[in-house]
């Protein structure tokens, strides 16, 4: 099983912090092997073609932007990427 490369894009607004926490919680709950990085640099964030933060990137693909998905959605997204 390959390690999931997860990035949370967000300069530190409230929603970005919420998404970061929710993602870590979901990864822990599912017992996934993943590296989670929080990206705060604007140039890097924008290069993912994201215009509203927070964004969630799994293995280089943006899977959500502009909102905080619910915990069950995050789990679904992680499991889909895992498969």
């Amino acid at each position: 099983m390959a390690t999931l490369d997860i990035k949370v894009l967000g300069p530190g607004c409230r929603n970005c912090v919420t998404l970061d926490k929710a993602t870590r919680a979901a990864v822990a709950e599912l017992g996934l092997d993943a590296s989670i990085e929080k990206v705060e640099d604007y140039a890097q964030i924008a290069s993912y073609n994201i215009m509203s933060t927070p964004g969630l990137v799994i293995d280089g693909t943006v899977v959500s932007s502009g909102r905080v998905p619910s915990p069950s959605e995050i789990k679904d997204l992680l499991l889909a990427a895992q498969a």
């Binding site: 929603n15 604007y42 924008a46 215009m51 509203s52 933060t53 502009g66």
Partner: peptide, 14 residues
């Protein structure tokens, strides 16, 4: 829908 916290990524994106 827009939050001023996204002003910079939106500016770059535009």
């Amino acid at each position: 829908p827009f939050c001023s916290c996204s002003a910079v990524p939106a500016f770059i994106g535009f």
